[in-house]
Amino acid sequence: MTAIEYIVGLSGLLVSALFIYGLKGMSSPVTAVKGIVTAGWGMAFVVAVCFLQAFEVPEDVLPHLPVNLGLAVLALALGGLWAGWRGRTVEMTAMPQMVALYNGMGGGSAAAVAAIALMKHDGGTPLHLGVTVTGALIGCISLTGSLIAWAKLDGRMPNPIRFSGQKVFNGIVFIVTLALGLMTVVTQVQGTPGGDLFALLFFAGALLFGICMTAPIGGADMPVVISLYNTFTGLAVGLEGYVMSNPALMIAGMVVGAAGTLLTLLMAKAMNRSLSNVLFSNFGATSAQAAA
């Protein structure tokens, strides 16, 4: 290992500890503010240290490095400033849909990481590719699902979309997407030309399934659904952390995955509903009427 690899690795270790400490703080009203500030400093630190990697890229990347660095800074500035400005200015009642929006962005980012890993074609093991594709699937579902949840809570999509045979339709979309994912892995392992088409269709299918899964759920159930997609993004990040051999991503992602699962179940329980009831029976409209 080189010195930079050591620094980046140790910064990941430090940030994992800060995240867990911060999350622990956030689970009590007294220490909650300190918790998020701790996690925030950790994040700023690890993003800054990440730029050290630019000093030791492989030979074939060197000519592209200035452009890559420029794009990275531009993307960080644009994404960060826009989200920070929106988060500050939006009214307090609109917070839940902003959480959904930002969560969807995280899912999309994990899917993008998976997409680049697939585009590299550096012939990973079937297991490695399988994890990549699974992370991409979960990330894509989280992206479009969160966007639909955001649209519903923001009043842009007032009525749930329901039609007869919807569950069968959704099931077919899911199975086709899984099959495409499997084909993506197989073509990547064998190096078949034209395998990229399967990957492209797989991403389209996963994005479509996120929409199909969320569209029939009523607006009153959205907090539980957002928490579920938060869990999904966490899991996707954890899996892509394995793909990128970055333990910090694995730990942060899986901690969020586990905490999010528990949180989702707690929130469903607070509504006197089971999670499968929220997801698969279209009671959202009924409970919204009952609450009104």
Binding site: G35, I36, C50, A54, V57, A75, E240, M244, G253
Partner: peptide
Amino acid sequence: GSNFIHGIVVVGALTALF
């Protein structure tokens, strides 16, 4: 808060972009 924490995916995305 956990939504913020899984934002660490940006580090993975940066590594991939580099």
